[in-house]
Design a protein around this nucleic acid. Structure first.
Length: 224
DNA sequence: TGATATGATTCGAG
DNA sequence: CTCGAATCATATCA
């Protein structure tokens, strides 16, 4: 019965597809800001696939139910015929019918399970933020690198600092945390590869620290 | 097209 | 919760 709830929550066994996308896109644990603006285009694709799954699911379900009905009537007719030869109690008929229904519902269970799997796969395919990774803007990486290389001794920004960096770079706090996590370990892994970058940012910091940025044409400030 | 860069996620430890 | 580490999946480069 968990499967039923599952399918219901995913909108597969929903009677209609009218409005209210509902709980489909809201079941994430944290969703670190990745999907804040651009849900429309990918979502249409996602919805299309989901409705395809739903259609198959419903047609299969209908087929099973029809087959179940046919088989049930067939068996009951058979038993009715036999009742002319031997006594057939209503209890026996009832038992046969329930056995048939049990078999068919087991098959339906399998259908539900495979549908569930398909939906989960689809979900992870489309809703996983890793699938639509975008590099940060020039401005964002600049801001982050400036902080990183000016705090090389302790590159662990506080919550406030993270918020400031996030605002300055136009990204979320979670993204700032991710960036610093990646940066720390990758810098440590081989510092040699980052020496060039390090000197660039440290010298930039030195220059920028001395005379504001009034006459510095090398800070485009708006990248994209 | 393969190699590399990079953002995001997962997992265990503290 | 945050952290380091490993890993995934995509973007970008040569």
């Amino acid at each position: 019965m968990r499967l039923d709830n599952m399918l219901l929550a995913e909108g597969v066994s929903r009677p209609e597809r009218r409005g209210r996308g509902g709980p489909v896109a809201a079941a994430n644990t944290a969703t670190p800001g990745g999907c804040s603006n651009d849900n429309s285009l990918e979502h249409s694709d996602y919805r299309a696939k989901l409705s395809q799954i739903r259609q198959i699911y419903h047609s299969e379900l209908e087929k099973y139910e029809q087959a179940c009905r046919e088989f049930t009537t067939h068996v009951t007719n058979l038993l009715r015929e036999q009742s002319r030869m031997r006594p057939v109690s209503p209890k026996e008929i009832e038992r046969m019918v329930s056995v048939i229904h049990g078999k068919f519902s087991a098959i339906q269970m399998q259908l539900k399970q495979s549908t569930c799997e398909a939906v989960m796969t689809l979900r992870s395919r489309f809703l996983d933020a890793r699938r639509k990774r975008r590099n940060f803007s020039k401005r964002a990486t600049e801001v982050l690198n400036e902080y990183f290389y000016s705090h090389l001794n302790n590159p662990y920004p506080s919550e406030e600092a993270k918020e400031r960096l996030a605002r300055k770079g136009g990204i979320t706090v979670s993204q700032v945390s991710n960036w610093f996590g990646n940066k720390r370990i990758r810098y440590k892994k081989n510092m040699g590869k980052f020496q060039e970058e390090a000197t660039i940012y440290t010298t930039k910091m030195a220059v920028g620290g001395l005379g504001s940025q009034a006459s510095c044409p090398s800070t485009p400030s708006s990248g994209e």
